[in-house]
Nucleic acid binder design. Structure first.
Lengths: 101, 101
DNA sequence: TATTCATATGAACCATATTTCATATATAAA
DNA sequence: TTTATATATGAAATATGGTTCATATGAATA
């Protein structure tokens, strides 16, 4: 239980959530992600490295590209839980919109 | 999907994880938590307010105490997923121990 | 209705994570 | 074997969130 926050830290970031959202559709190279998310390459590389460290994404080399894919086994059920949570508990309280303060 | 990171931000913090862990055992007042976690009162109040905003915990007034409880419906399955993830994907790579870098 | 107990709040300060930018590495193609 | 392409890395700058501390609020009791 003690180190969970390190895992969640990786999800507590809008860019990383965008990456996850994009990779839900299909596996992608860094370049594809830069285009899709209109984001700088090094920024993405940093984020992807971080996500990889927690096994939230996987990667494989393909020529000079590196293809990233989502760890669907962990992440999809987790997102389902959040969706359910949002619908059930965050109606008008808009908990997911409020700053964490 | 866009605001998920705000929810996760609340879990990306050692103190908040400790709070969750403590509330898993039983509902507690702020004072009980300060003793259990050996932590300052205002620190806990700030953290609890934040957790409440995302409906991760609930509260009820009881005399001059305020009793906090865990949203078990969302949080217990979520912790299960992480446990499974940890065992399956974070063996020797110790992803949950590495800094998110 | 003072006083004490329990908790919340605000703002300044501080720590940590993210962004940026310059550069390094690695692979393929010319 | 140089050049171009794709990605990674490091360090400084910046942003973001957490902690601290003093104080406010709110409820019970004397």
């Amino acid at each position: 239980m003690n180190k969970y926050y390190l895992f969640f830290g990786n999800l507590a970031n809008p860019l990383k959530i965008e990456i996850i959202s994009a990779l839900k559709e299909k596996d992608m190279s860094v370049l594809e992600l830069t285009k899709k998310l209109n984001t700088e390459q090094s920024k993405l590389s940093h984020a992807l490295t971080s996500l990889k460290h927690c096994s939230i994404v996987n990667d494989k080399k393909e020529g000079k590209k590196r293809i990233y894919s989502l760890n669907r086994e962990t992440i999809l059920p987790m997102l389902q839980i959040i969706d359910k949570h949002e619908h059930k508990f965050c109606g008008k309280c808009r908990a997911l919109e409020s700053r964490n303060k």
